[in-house]
Amino acid sequence: MKILVTAKRVPNPEQKLKLAGGQIDLSGASWQVNTFDEYAVETALRLTEKGKGGERAGEVVVVSVGPKDVAQQLRGVLAMGADRAILVGAEDAALDADSVARILKAVVEREKPDLVVLGKQTVDGDSNQVGQILAGLLGWPQATFLASIRAAADGKSATVTREVDAGVEEKRVRLPAVVTVDLRIIGKKAVRNEALAPDGAEWDETQRYASLKGIMAAKKKEIKEVPLAELGVAPAPLLKVKTYEAPPARKAGIKVASVEELASKLHNEAKVI
């Protein structure tokens, strides 16, 4: 199975955001791969493995749309085990979900994967759109917010579970398809390609980290830089962020000394019980 995985670099979410003059100052940001995209890579790797640490079959191609510096994050993803990478050059500010999806569509048409795996959302923009837009543009089936995926032995379909408000939904999609992954996709038995891994195959309950061997191997792997012009798409973002502001601050709270005081404050002061 040939799998295309997306990876976006995002500023480290644990770092305090610098907001000034209606803009976010990212000059001092430390960058990392969006967590959900690490999970997407892990998903793709498991789908091409005969069990944990087992032999691999198929190909995992990672694609990112962004500035040249993203090569550094892509190198990390190659060190996890992905086979090769594509970096489509674009400035982050010139992109929105629609333009990213249009660029990805052009990459899909070139690479012809059986499956595209994305993260369910980026943790900077929090937009949760690209996978669905891509599927819509391609006219492919989609399965979003995956908690598990099982690729059929014949390679023609995948059965998934999705995290929905009412619980867990089960869905089957014909391949090729677009899927987006949620947190629980890294569960021990959440991913399996029936053509490769035996029933009951288990992985570690985390995304894999780059081993020294992986890092050495990654140095020889290809990161192909593709200019936008070569793909024949000229992104024109439809969604523009005009300003960023800090959210309204909550007024400072108090510590109460006892449960009695807590209950009395909630009753008499806040009037919520």
């Binding site: 955001l17 937009s127 523009k240 962020v241």
Partner: peptide, 14 residues
């Protein structure tokens, strides 16, 4: 909201 609620964006949808 964006950035896990740590920023509020004003956006224009074209």
């Amino acid at each position: 909201p964006a950035y896990a609620g740590n920023a509020v964006e004003t956006v224009e949808v074209g």
